[in-house]
Design a protein around this nucleic acid. Structure first.
Lengths: 217, 217
DNA sequence: GACGTAATTAACCGGCGGGTTCATTATCGC
DNA sequence: GCGATAATGAACCCGCCGGTTAATTACGTC
């Protein structure tokens, strides 16, 4: 990091430049979507130039795809850190819901990239190959919880791990993605700390209730 | 409606032209977002010209705002047709969830417009004045159901109508908005008729369970 | 130090698309 | 019919922005 005083030993560092561009591009694409983002705006916020953006990433769409892929990888890596193995199934499920809720909330740029990608019909994401396994891993976690719950006699027999994941995602995602319009329509009382705590708790509670064989437990 | 006595011939019909533009513009903005939509593309699909689009709506952003406002008005009008007054509270709530789920699913263009608007931070919607009342009406429906449920001894005392609406919206909205990426990540099994029926039923069931004082009922 | 390659800079280009100009036609009130 | 105004058509303008050209500088290798 620190430079040698005598010889200006400032090393060229392509990887850092690349990472710098990616970082800024993620923010810009997340804020503005694909078309509204200007490569020059990205360049201006990096230490390098517009020419270099094209030099490293080819064209705008490839940069966007690189951003999307990096964002997915980062978020999935964050998810993988959650360890639920040693929890009883009901507590594991509750913790998974709370974690997902918090995790989405902490990564609004990722959420916005997914929104953008959905507007585009997923056409860029469909070209990303490697994420199939990562995603199935997410489902497998839920399936293990469900199975453990069934074996413990706690959970219903007929729950679908995929549909469960869908519901957990729906609430966690919507909470970030639709904040602007929801707050404009109904006020922002649900988006301060107290409101968010309420939503988080009710999400966890309703998910849990819905899988329990005996909801009174 | 159809007859116009000798004055006002069929030839020039500004209102129809305007409606034609709005209709096409809604589809284009919903499919492509604001920046990616080309006014010329809209014009080409109408019976009129690009020149007329500007003549009637001023500029692109005003057209977008007009589309958004019209879409909101139409969807809210559709919601207002639901009558739950004569149902017991638990059935009313279930029906409201199912209706919302179906209604969102039947109006993907509206959903996509709201997605686009959220990407833009709601900056255009914040200029729409009249929708505050419409939205409060939606909450009031839920509040009446909750109150009736409490009075009947069926529902918990501590449920928030707004948080309940948030959860119903979250699932109904996400089901449409994130279909592309969800299907790419986890397959499209949840989006055929059978999968959708499952999601709809589980959404209703989990909402209902979460408000009941005695969930075994 | 010399050579080849990787990284960088400055200046440029071209077409796409939002918005306009100006001339023309239809419609209405009288 | 006549004048005023609303509605329409064809062609045009121009600035923005994605992408490029060409020349220059740093760097690894011998």
């Amino acid at each position: 990091m620190e430079d040698q005083p005598k010889s200006r030993r400032w090393k060229q560092n392509p990887e850092a430049v690349r990472a710098d561009i990616l970082r800024v591009a993620q923010e810009e694409f997340a804020r503005n979507g694909l078309s509204r983002t200007r490569i020059e705006d990205i360049a201006d916020r990096t230490k390098t130039s517009k020419r270099m953006v094209f030099y490293y990433f080819g064209d705008k769409e490839s940069l966007y795809k690189a951003v999307l892929e990096a964002a997915y990888a980062e978020v999935r890596a964050g998810e993988a850190e959650l360890d639920l193995e040693d929890l009883p199934p009901d507590q594991a499920l509750r913790r998974l819901v709370e974690f997902t809720f918090d995790h989405h909330r902490a990564n609004p740029d990722f959420i916005r990239l997914v929104m953008v990608e959905n507007i585009h019909g997923g056409s860029h994401m469909s070209q990303m190959e490697q994420l199939a396994q990562q995603n199935l891993a997410a489902i497998r976690v839920l399936e293990r919880i469900c199975e453990a719950g069934r074996e413990a006699g706690l959970f219903r027999e007929d729950i679908s791990a995929l549909a469960l994941h869908w519901r957990i995602s729906a609430m966690s995602f919507f909470n970030v993605s639709n904040r602007a319009t929801f707050a404009l329509n109904f006020g922002d009382s649900l988006f301060d700390e107290k409101g968010q705590a309420l939503l988080r708790e009710e999400a966890a509670r309703s998910i849990l209730l819905s899988v329990l064989k005996d909801p009174t437990g």
